[in-house]
Design a protein around this nucleic acid. Structure first.
Lengths: 342, 342
DNA sequence: CTGGTATGGGATACCGGTGTCATTTGCAAG
DNA sequence: CTTGCAAATGACACCGGTATCCCATACCAG
């Protein structure tokens, strides 16, 4: 039915009776054209389903229309939501999104990434935590001539390069909620050493306790690694204490699920004998019994914002002015928190 | 330090004292070259970190080096594993992977997809279930001149275009396991109408029961939609029955988690009073208590295979001969199955 | 009527590769 | 010492766009 060959700019130029440069001007919304000429060309373009070849444009313009998502993160839902957000931000543009997981502990990390960026001539790159906390990576992007935006749990770069949630405030709120419920023996399962998000969440937790003049014994701070198994081990230690905590804040949902699991293993009733708050609001939080009270951060909106920051300048409609660099999280109250029974 | 500009083929040609065509031949492993020339050029390439511009190659060759992953699926872990598999299959090639979610129920689905394919001049496309079951989509890919591979739970296209698990066999095995344990009142929460995977899983379930001469009352077949909430509603109906089933097979883990949740709501002990088997082996299966017995299918291997099938021919090292078009699933035995207590 | 100046639009080179075909080189046979 | 032929290399056009610069026309003032 339709032409079997994709029409090129030359075809359109010939059919419209103009030069290919004029067609190019129409495509690029050049202001130098008569309305008449523009309409004439646009009509031909529409009639023939003409789509400019992005490879040719990329070659001529010296930049590719590819945004990469870089991650080294086990949280599938988070990555997928981020993908969704970025794609929303890229909608109706000619940009596409490529996804690239990396290995944080690889010794050739920086070189591998540079190779990837150079190979694909990437236009921009969104870096997810925890690797986004690595300044060397950001520096390399800069050097490689690739725009970048870092996602994170605190602002660690200038506005243009950062989209952050405010984990500290969110955890402070969550902890205050536990305190309001009457808890005073509150423990935390922290995230891994060296993770900014882990540090921020711990800081928020400590701030809330300090403000309420509640002491945090060293033993109430158990180290986790953001994984289910590490959460399990950490919780075991906490529940072995005497007196044991009446509430536990886990630095992510994966570990919060582990806290719940560990409580079940010992026959502890949740939330009557142990209150739990998690972080992330992944699907797992609402699939366990009881459903977990947790902190939700606006991943999709943050992804959208990151995409906008990257392509601002390339796309006329996108302006980065009203893109915040910090997003607010909210506490989702479900069934895993209750006042302590004395 | 390093040259600030990326070297081009002309730079390399000049520095090596050969024509750019010769450099091109080196890049493409042409057999027509002297070892001497080849080595000389390769040395220069290495010295200057030269990477051919993929956009230029794509333009000259008339095909892009982009593989797309198309999905319309709520299962984040599955999609991410698939991404991982595809990227493994693409490793050390110049191909990159772009990700594109679609809306199955959009009336403009086919046109949107065609637009996407044509716009990006995609080299190939991996289609995930359930949209992979849509023959119109496959036909459109064909027409648009885009290679495709469909993932699915049964073979519904020729070898070259299909990577499938065998859900029917896997569910038959799982059901037989329940029967071996002594269950005879076994119910199923099915997947949504019109999904091939749902039909296959149901078929396997029915085959096992028929073989064991166990009757499947109509009321023991509750319709779900692969979502947690639908699984919850379906389970409520099953548990209202009298006598109620002693075991439930849920057609995916999300719904299996809902079965568990529903059992808890009524104070039923799992697995003592109710055995549960799920499907997918998503992380949630091992995060709930008790951990779910479930069917695991080799998503990563399947993704890798799909990528290989797509780029076979483009990459010398990849041959599609030993790529199976059907992959086997395995039953993962955890804690949600026990003999019925009479 | 002439000359100056905007302004729309075209000719041509160029982006960085690849295909085609011509040319050079090496070496055995005549 | 030619000639013949195959192997190795190069010249040049081309892929489908964009940038630069130049020309044609229209409009205006003097």
């Amino acid at each position: 039915m339709r032409a079997t060959m994709k029409p090129t700019i030359n075809d359109i130029a010939r059919l419209a009776g103009v030069s290919k440069k004029t067609v190019s001007r129409v495509i690029n919304d050049s202001p130098l054209l008569t309305e008449e000429t523009r309409d004439k060309v646009k009509l031909v373009i529409a009639e023939h389903d003409y789509v400019p070849n992005p490879q040719a444009r990329a070659l001529a313009l010296g930049r590719n229309f590819l945004i990469a998502l870089l991650h080294d993160n086990p949280n599938a839902q988070m990555i997928l939501n981020m993908q969704q957000g970025i794609l929303e931000g890229l909608r109706d543009t000619e940009f596409a999104m490529v996804v690239q997981p990396v290995n944080r502990s690889s010794p050739t990390l920086i070189e591998d990434m540079r190779e990837f960026i150079v190979r694909q001539r990437l236009y921009g790159i969104v870096i997810l935590p925890p690797i986004s906390e690595n300044d060397a990576v950001a520096k390399m992007c800069q050097e490689a001539g690739c725009r970048y935006v870092r996602m994170g749990s605190a602002v660690l770069d200038d506005r243009a390069h950062m989209v952050a949630s405010n984990d500290r405030d969110a955890v402070r709120d969550a902890t205050e909620y536990l305190i309001e419920q009457g808890h005073s023996r509150i423990a935390i399962v922290t995230g891994p050493q060296g993770f900014r998000s882990a540090a921020e969440r711990l800081a928020g937790f400590e701030e809330a306790l300090a403000e309420a003049k509640i002491k945090l014994p060293r033993s109430f701070r158990a180290q986790g690694e953001y994984t289910f198994d590490s959460g399990l081990a950490a919780t075991e230690k906490l529940l072995d204490l005497s007196p044991r905590p009446t509430a536990i804040f886990a630095s992510n949902d994966e570990m919060a699920a582990a806290v719940l699991y560990a409580a079940r293993l010992r026959g502890l009733k949740v939330p009557e004998e142990l209150s739990i708050i998690g972080f992330d609001d992944t699907p797992i939080a609402s699939r366990v019994w009881p459903p977990l009270t947790t902190v939700r951060w606006p991943i999709v909106a943050m992804g959208r914002s990151a995409a906008h920051k990257l392509i601002a300048g390339a796309i006329a409609e996108v302006d980065t002015e009203n893109e915040p660099s910090e997003f607010l999280s909210t506490l989702i109250r479900r069934g895993s928190v209750a006042p302590p029974k004395q």
